[in-house]
Design a protein around this nucleic acid. Structure first.
Lengths: 134, 134
DNA sequence: TTACGTGCAAAAAATTTGCAGTTTC
DNA sequence: GAAACTGCAAATTTTTTGCACGTAA
């Protein structure tokens, strides 16, 4: 456990939004100016492997980057608005049951799950003047 | 609807495995030697936007690429083995119910969902001699 | 120590953009 | 013929690799 890893893990753990590798690098440089982009990638890979953080796409609403968040106590669902990009997180007993089902039906020992939903939030549905054509 | 788009859509629709952009380009070149990588990306983006295909990560078991598949009639769950990479697809009534729940609870009009699961398949659990340490 | 981790340089992949010529309807 | 699409070139962005030096346990 090195200084750099502590810094990176700390950033992801305390983040209030979902960060991608570049944003993490940027923040890390603030705390440790010499930290390298490579170290960020390597550390994220490691933390992911060890189940300390999870990787997300957030439906790729803004480019094809990946986001990271601290692995929560209980899995949650990520709902991303395809128009404004807002992300809502949701826990669900039904989701827990579904996972148990999958484990049994697919005969798999589940390590990680990711449920991402894309759609339109209430605000966007209200303000969108039903664009015609495209 | 151009020749190139027909080719690319055809490839994804008839594929028996999940293909990534490079594999699609390769197959497309077989049918239309002049087709460009750029056209593949643009077309995939378009087909995705129009809900004709879905994009997957398959838990990034082999690199950070993205895979594509024809949009199925009914959503299914992708279960990927983190050791051997095998992918199992699963439909589930519970999943359907969960989506309805999410739509209501998050007040979102769902357009697309993606449930990916990573874990260890039966075969790998059987053959893995409980690696110690790492 | 001493195996592991880091920074630096550079390569490899993956994806996007600008633009002029071509095709579809 | 007009609008939309393509190929080509090149730029970006994202991620990975090799290697000599530095560091935590």
């Amino acid at each position: 456990m090195t200084r750099q890893r502590r810094v990176i893990l700390g950033i992801v753990e305390t983040a209030t939004t979902h960060l991608d590798a570049s944003q993490i690098l940027l923040q890390a440089k603030g705390l440790d100016p010499n930290i390298d982009r490579v170290t960020v990638y390597r550390t994220l890979g490691l933390l992911k492997q060890h189940g300390m953080i999870d990787e997300l796409d957030l439906m790729h609403v803004e480019g094809e980057k990946h986001f990271y968040e601290r692995r929560p106590q209980r899995d949650h669902i990520h709902v991303t608005c395809l128009r404004c990009g807002k992300v809502v997180e949701l826990e669900s007993a039904l989701f827990d049951r579904l996972k148990a089902n999958i484990q049994r039906e697919a005969d798999v020992q589940i390590v990680v799950t990711r449920l991402e939903v894309g759609g339109y939030c209430a605000d966007c549905r209200a303000s969108a003047p039903a664009r015609k054509g495209k």
